[in-house]
């Protein structure tokens, strides 16, 4: 029912409908007034009337191959596979991070700086500590670094916690918004029901109402 969320999308691919629409809009505007700047500025944005049934990413992705590799490794340390579900990279989180930091909007542009600088910093730190890139580190080496980053009072904490928190939140959000993530977090909705049954007895007992 759900298309794979990690489906590769060519950076400038537009559906025929969308392309036609934009041409029509552009020509309609050209007829009326001097507002050519709209069309130029808009072309790589979502636009105010996108096809809601299609996932089209009109802007080019900017992360390099090595950045993508590091995103994948780090995201899987943050959200690993376990009994509740697969690891982050298995549900397209790497593609999401690339899509997110490449987006032309103010918030994403700000976060792009923090995330790319943070990724570079993490690799440098891994090199200094273990003599190899973060991606080349063994699991215990990776968690040693992350534990230092999240521990209050360390130099790594000072330098890297803002990056860690942002990156972790984006990875977790991207993960849990997939159907696999729903299963992992315990979301069982988004299915049609004839009646809404309300909470089951075990839920009422859990909150002390039965």
């Amino acid at each position: 029912m759900h298309p794979p969320s990690s489906q590769p999308v060519s950076p400038l691919a537009l559906s025929r409908r969308e392309a036609l629409r934009r041409i029509l809009v552009a020509s309609a505007l050209a007829v009326s007034l001097d507002i050519t700047s709209f069309a130029v500025e808009d072309i790589r944005r979502i636009g105010d009337d996108p096809d809601l049934l299609k996932k089209e990413i009109p802007w080019p992705r900017i992360l390099t191959e090595s950045e993508r590799k590091l995103v994948t490794v780090l995201a899987d340390v943050i959200v690993p596979a376990d009994e509740f579900g697969p690891a982050a990279s298995a549900v397209g989180v790497t593609d999401f991070i690339d899509e997110w930091v490449s987006a032309p909007y103010e918030q994403q542009q700000k976060e792009q700086k923090i995330i790319r600088q943070g990724l570079a910093w993490l690799d440098t730190t891994a090199q200094q500590r273990f003599g190899r890139s973060f991606a080349a580190c063994a699991d215990p080496e990776r968690t040693t670094l992350l534990d230092d980053i999240v521990r209050d009072g360390t130099d790594l904490h000072k330098a890297g916690i803002a990056f860690f928190r942002l990156f972790r939140d984006r990875v977790a959000g991207a993960y849990y918004s997939t159907p696999e993530g729903w299963a992992a977090i315990g979301y069982t909705g988004n299915v049609p029901m004839a009646e809404f049954p309300g909470p089951p007895p075990e839920a009422l007992r859990h909150v002390g109402l039965a």
């Binding site: 029912m1 759900h2 298309p3 969320s5 944005r45 979502i46 636009g47 105010d48 996108p50 809601l52 049934l53 996932k55 089209e56 990413i57 549900v91 397209g92 999401f96 899509e99 997110w100 987006a103 909007y105 103010e106 994403q108 959000g173 991207a174 918004s177 997939t178 159907p179 729903w182 988004n190």
Partner: peptide, 17 residues
């Protein structure tokens, strides 16, 4: 029934939407 993974930017708010 689309999941937010079926939207650009996981359906996040943008200036246009």
């Amino acid at each position: 029934f689309q999941s937010f993974a079926d939207a650009p930017l996981r359906g996040a708010s943008t200036p246009e939407k």
